[in-house]
């Protein structure tokens, strides 16, 4: 049965880009790409993907975006939060293990990619392209705890790594056909750019996407993506490129807490 755990925050680490990483005891059976609902019973309850999983610890890397994360950012080691999960369909680690993988991450979306990179067995070959607006926004700019085949950063303003976004890096210096799978997580406009660029290649891709979430157990329908209706909290948050292509909502709009559509900048409202 679903239950909430009171978990003590064991450490708080400040990350680049105004992110913070919270360490907690791992009392779960969780895999990369899955998420938890976390509350303080005062500022709502929000979904958080794991950014690192060890046998006895889980980590969440968070950006301050609303009242709950503001409260979380005020917390320090010794404070407690209330956690339920894990939820969702994470990355298919069995499929990805030992393969040649291209990771394309942006912003906070880099967190779940880190957990995956660290989780996969050592023989997996991972090229990790980490994108952000500028040097100060880059999460994990110094690489991960595990050796990668290649790790590079890209910033829109060129203040760190290559100038441009992760797609620009792919266009200029990556042979997509040399990879078995592409795995991507980040802001939706970035994911759209990735989808559009890789559509002319035959490399299969996995996308981790976000929607406003309420129940997280698949009954409220809040995070269903039109027109198929798949739920980010159950069928997602990781979707195949094949499924993503059926989701006409993707990259065009998302819904707020009332279910009202909000169109992405530049997307058509009709």
């Amino acid at each position: 049965m679903d239950r909430r755990f009171k978990l003590e925050i064991l450490s708080v680490t400040s990350e680049n880009g105004g992110h913070k990483t919270f360490e907690m005891k791992n009392v779960f059976d969780v895999s990369p790409g899955q998420f938890f609902m976390i509350t303080d019973y005062e500022n709502g309850e929000k979904p958080f993907s794991v950014s690192r999983i060890t046998p006895d610890r889980i980590f969440f890397t968070v950006k301050e975006v609303g009242s709950f994360t503001t409260k979380l950012f005020e917390m320090s080691a010794g404070d407690s939060v209330y956690v339920r999960g894990p939820y969702g369909n994470g990355f298919n680690c069995e499929l990805l293990a030992g393969k040649r993988l291209l990771f394309l991450g942006g912003g906070c979306g880099t967190g779940p990619l880190r957990s995956l990179a660290e989780f996969l067995p050592a023989e997996t070959e991972i090229t990790f392209i980490n994108g952000a607006r500028s040097k100060d926004d880059l999460l994990f700019k110094d690489g991960l705890a595990v050796p990668l085949s290649d790790f590079c950063c890209a910033t829109d303003d060129g203040s760190a790594g290559t100038v441009g976004n992760v797609v620009d890096v792919c266009k200029n210096s990556v042979d997509l056909n040399s990879y078995d799978y592409i795995v991507t997580s980040g802001p939706e406009p970035m994911l759209c750019a990735v989808r559009d660029y890789i559509s002319s290649f035959s490399v299969p891709a996995f996308y981790l996407i976000e929607r406003y979430m309420k129940c997280a157990v698949g009954i409220c329908g809040q995070c269903s993506v039109d027109p198929v209706g798949v739920r980010v909290c159950v069928e997602g948050p990781v979707f195949t490129g094949e499924m993503l292509n059926r989701l006409s909502e993707f990259g065009v709009y998302k819904r707020d807490a009332s279910g009202t559509k909000h169109y992405f900048k530049g997307a058509s409202g009709t």
Partner: peptide, 24 residues
């Protein structure tokens, strides 16, 4: 927008929910 979370909770044999009539 409905109520803030938590809006659901599972208990033995049942669910308890208060979404707060969120609708567009």
């Amino acid at each position: 927008s409905g109520h803030p979370g938590p809006v659901v909770c599972e208990i033995e044999g049942a669910m308890i929910n208060a979404m707060g009539l969120c609708n567009p």
